[in-house]
């Protein structure tokens, strides 16, 4: 059907910076971040909620960037992997991932790190089983997960000791 679609103004905070942009209602949050904001650290895999590559944080909670419209971020605070990296809050996780070979191609890594950040905030001392359950929605086609769980365990233990 013919349908006059208007672009809508969205004002959101992305990685601490206030952004105002015009978007088509159908624009997914992850496409907005990658194409309009040029923040390509957030990846796009399945585009229907299954793989977790597009994980970002909205007002502190992890969400699927492919299952939210950009306009729904109006008035909310978005943090992407670029923001988490800049703030240094995940430096120890990144180091542990590197040292333990918890990434190979790296496609899943940004989404993994976003999900792990939320998990460790909620549960600073997760068991291996709890880690696996929390990350059940983040697919990795390379590592076989074992190294990822190891890296997280290491960080959790170090943070506890700190």
């Amino acid at each position: 059907m013919t349908n006059q679609i208007e672009q809508i103004q969205v004002t959101t905070t992305v990685n601490g910076e206030k952004v105002t942009a015009l978007v088509e209602p159908r624009t997914n949050l992850v496409d907005f971040l990658r194409n309009q904001m040029e923040l390509t650290g957030t990846h796009v895999g399945c585009e229907h909620g299954v793989c977790g590559a597009c994980t970002v944080r909205i007002d502190g909670e992890i969400v699927r960037g492919c299952l939210m419209l950009a306009i729904q971020a109006d008035g909310l605070e978005v943090v992407t992997i670029e923001g988490s990296d800049d703030s240094g809050e995940i430096a120890d996780l990144q180091k542990a991932f590197h040292e333990r070979n918890a990434l190979q191609c790296g496609f899943c890594t940004p989404g993994m790190l976003m999900a792990i950040t939320e998990m460790l905030e909620k549960n600073p001392d997760p068991s291996r089983q709890e880690i696996r359950e929390y990350l059940s929605g983040n697919y990795c086609r390379c590592t076989g997960y074992e190294a990822i769980v190891d890296a997280i365990e290491t960080v959790a233990n170090t943070r506890k000791g700190a």
């Binding site: 349908n3 679609i5 208007e6 809508i8 088509e24 209602p25 159908r26 624009t27 997914n28 496409d31 194409n35 309009q36 585009e47 419209l69 306009i71």
Partner: peptide, 13 residues
Amino acid sequence: IREVQLKPSAFNY
């Protein structure tokens, strides 16, 4: 290219 990358068909909101 950006338009090609929009997945859903157009709708009003």
